[in-house]
Amino acid sequence: MVAISEQTYKNATAVTRRDNPFRFDPLFAALSKAAAITVLVLLAGIMSSMVYGGWDAFAKFGTGFFTGTQWDTMNDNYGGLPAIVGTLSTALIAMIIGVPLSIGTAIYLTQLAPGWFKGPVGTAVELLAAVPSIIYGMWGLFVFVPLFAAYFQVPVSQVVEGMPILGTILYARSPSGLGILSAGVILAFMIVPFIASLTRDMLDQIPTVLRESAYGIGCTTWEVVRHVLLPQAGVSIIGAIMLGLGRALGETMAVTFVIGNANRLSASIMDPGSTIASRIASEFNEALGMQMNALIALGCILFFVTFVVLVIARILVSRVKQY
């Protein structure tokens, strides 16, 4: 008798528990919170694995790792300066070429293009962002580099040869088309769609009444852009540019194809060089021991540089939402 009543009791409670519509609530909330925390764990994991993997190289070479120009796999002596300089100079060139192009594109898309034309052109620019970087690399190596060598490097080298400063920076010892400048130009084309579409969205958010009142007092398009739109969107455009910079710094495959992968520091931007990302991509699979540590240490430097750039970018971009 007792056993039966216990059984009945258990059944009864089981039924009520199954009927309780709220019983999944805490579990679901906890799962979603855990998923959100996964994002934090991933970034912390990337950061600590870079520091852990590169620790031996940092410990052995100290600050010499940042200033050394040797990359000697025979004697296990590694300095990261050529790759660091290569990363910064390709990104700088990409910015110098890419930023005016992107802002020009954004201005065209928001102010100048006829209505029916905005959609297709905007889509085309965004599709340019979807093209994988290895395709840019192939295009760069097989189409852009030969043209660049024949129609830019050779004539420019002839003109600047012997000139005081230009003769050093722009002279190509072997005009193969591969080098820091080619990598910078390809990177510029890769970041244009990013900066342009972000800037376009920001310009679109500016209240139309501001623009129209400026046109109303007789301003030209240039004056509206220069004195109304750019000051209004200013900080967030800088944010968009920084996002593009973050991408240019860490871009790998396209750069690996066209930079020439030379492990030396060269004064000329026409000469082959390497970036941190291209060095890792081309050497990592054959690397052992200290060379692998040194490559991860380079990755660690890249991580912290892009992290700082991206943090600043996100802070600047998020400002636009506040007004």
């Binding site: 994002v39 991933l42 970034l43 990337i46 870079m50 996002l243 973050g246 991408r247 710094l249 860490g250 871009e251 790998t252 990302a277 890792i280 991509a281 990755g299 890249l302 991580f303 892009t306 992290f307 991206l310 943090v311 970018a313 996100r314």
Partner: peptide, 11 residues
């Protein structure tokens, strides 16, 4: 998450 969105894929 926004930082991770544009972190270099090689890293």
């Amino acid at each position: 998450n926004d930082i991770l969105l544009s972190a270099p894929s090689i890293l």
